[in-house]
Nucleic acid binder design. Structure first.
Ligand SMILES: [Mn+2]
Ligand SMILES: [Mn+2]
Ligand SMILES: [Zn+2]
Ligand SMILES: [Zn+2]
Lengths: 142, 142
DNA sequence: TCCTTATTGAAAACAATTTTCATTTATCGG
DNA sequence: CCGATAAATGAAAATTGTTTTCAATAAGGA
């Protein structure tokens, strides 16, 4: 289970395992879409009603530092967190249900380097996201 | 001058031309980098000290509606506005001085379509930004 | 020049996030 | 198993960024 790996990693970093953290980790680790702090709060409260929103912020911050989650930027907002993929990947997001899927695409590196050269830049990072409609939503909204 | 074009466009939409608007438009139109509302406020005040921050927000909102500026997302924040390019373009941003340059790259559309297919998504938009170091900053920081 | 009404800036309201702090509790050493 | 200790918690306050409200101002058509 992904949440167990995350908890183990938190422990390895010297952090303590609390009920609050377990609840937050559980929620984020198994979510198919990026969640805002408030989303995480509301969902996690079902497992641990005493949870405070502050703790959600603090836990997300740590998970991000450990590269277990990443922030996702969308039109609707830029403070949603998603389980991070292994290695360098890019996102494909359904604009209806917000489901997020990772894909690789590193054939692009060369092209990006050339674009940089043309403008006398040294390119050392890139940011790529695709938006569309997923299979399930296609079925529903057609 | 780009700011004159923008003012003309505002006028065409029935908006009035005020000193406050002129100052904001001037600032944003000639900036080589994306500016936050506060940036715009501080820079514009030099030309029009009576300016209020509210007016900056309101003017940026209108410029965005008219597609004269676009919001730019970066690690440091997602509320910076930049003069928009003609047609569909992508951004190359210097992480040192924040200078932004547009480039075309629509050879990518096919690839993005294929990625979508592989995941049973219909892809209808994408978001691509490159980050690097521009010529000037390279010179300074090396 | 006058009239109408869009636009303005100050102040208040609101929302999201961070800080502060007294209390609780996870972990460690015995 | 205890405690002891320091990390972690949640409530409340503070801070920050943005929007709304509103009375005063001024742009632009007549
Ligand atoms: Mn890549
Ligand atoms: Mn494109
Ligand atoms: Zn963003
Ligand atoms: Zn969907």
């Amino acid at each position: 289970m992904k949440s167990d790996t995350w908890l183990k990693e938190l422990r390895k970093q010297g952090y303590r395992l609390t009920e609050a953290r377990r609840a937050v980790v559980e929620t984020v680790a198994q979510s198919p879409r990026a969640l805002s702090p408030t989303d995480v709060y509301n969902l996690s409260k079902e497992h641990y009603p005493a949870l405070g929103l502050v703790t959600v912020y603090r836990t997300l911050e740590k998970l991000e530092e450990l590269h277990l989650v990443q922030r996702v930027h969308q039109e609707e907002g830029c403070n949603a967190y998603l389980s991070e993929a292994e290695g360098h990947q890019h996102l494909l997001i359904c604009t209806e249900c917000k489901k997020a899927v990772y894909f690789e695409g590193d054939d692009l590196g060369d092209f990006f380097g050339k674009v940089g050269e043309m403008h006398n830049f040294v390119v050392n990072d890139h940011w790529l996201q695709l938006f569309g409609i997923c299979e399930d939503c296609k079925r529903i909204y057609d």
